[in-house]
């Protein structure tokens, strides 16, 4: 009896969170092009349709490649910064850490406009690599926080032990620290990947008219009316995100990771 209110709240919040996902998955199964729920003439026909329509496959390809590369950029920035903050308490690294966290806290449209003006000023407008760099810089906050958390979980003793045994800084880093922090590195990469995949406004402002990512493609098509392929690609992206996040939960301690994603540290 005591558990009843808890059950009620969990059910209501669950229903609220799942409702738009369930209905999108539902309408993706409609046989006809009409928007009805529950689906009629249930079939996977529109999934097959997706496989043969370059107009949708191209943006999906763009999104995946941008996510793959920009997450790499984000991790490559975050790894040295987080390491130097932890290992040397370097003031410079701490300044970079603050700089890296900030774009993620601010409304993304600010970054988007900054990037737009920057690339327009240097005369290199609307290119693919601009989006990669833009997302890379915007998403640095994620690997930064996960990596610092990972480093802090490593006892300083193991680092000291490596040093007394004569290991150089570099050897100690890649034989002791990196393997221990690897789950956090993977989590940081994964978070950045998933967020890049789903990001709209920054990608749109940097190169929305030349490099179409999937969110841009869906939004553009929304203006011309409904097609079930929108639902199909949404389901697909949702599945990719869930799979990656479930993977993160497997390789690292999600409850601990989430404990760290607060904006300030005690």
């Amino acid at each position: 009896m005591r558990r009843l209110p808890a059950l009620l709240i969990f059910t209501l919040v669950g229903a609220f969170l799942l409702a738009p996902l369930v209905i999108v998955a539902g309408v993706s199964l409609n046989g006809q092009k009409r928007l009805v729920f529950p689906p009629r003439e249930v079939s996977l026909g529109w999934y097959g349709e997706l496989a043969t329509s370059p107009a949708w496959l191209l943006p999906i390809g763009h999104s995946l490649l941008i996510a793959f590369l920009s997450a790499l950029v984000a991790v490559s920035i975050a790894l040295p910064v987080a390491y130097y903050v932890w290992r040397f308490h370097s003031r410079w690294a701490r300044a970079l850490y603050g700089l890296g966290i900030s774009p993620f806290i601010l409304p993304p449209v600010i970054c988007g406009l900054g990037f737009l003006i920057f690339w327009a000023s240097v005369g290199h407008f609307g290119r693919f690599e601009n989006v990669v760099l833009g997302h890379g810089v915007f998403l640095v906050a994620l690997p930064l926080t996960t990596l610092l958390l990972g480093f802090e979980g490593i006892g300083r003793e193991s680092m000291d032990a490596a040093e007394t045994m004569g290991a150089s800084e570099w050897v100690a880093f890649h034989t002791v620290v990196l393997p221990l922090a690897l789950p956090y590195l993977i989590s940081g990469y994964a978070f950045a990947f998933v967020l890049s995949l789903n990001e709209y406004i920054i990608a749109y402002m940097i190169a929305g008219f030349t490099v179409e990512t999937l969110p841009i493609k869906i939004f553009n098509s929304l203006r011309y009316g409904y097609t079930p392929i929108m639902a199909v690609v949404s389901v697909l992206f949702l599945l990719i995100s869930v799979a990656i996040l479930a993977l993160v939960a497997r390789v690292s301690d999600l409850t601990r990771l989430m404990g760290a994603l607060e904006p300030e540290r005690k």
Partner: peptide
């Protein structure tokens, strides 16, 4: 947490479309 993170990372476009 997996559900929450999935919804959080979901594109605003997909959320808008779903609603």
């Amino acid at each position: 947490l997996i559900v929450i993170l999935s919804v959080l990372s979901l594109s605003e476009v997909i959320v808008g479309f779903g609603w």
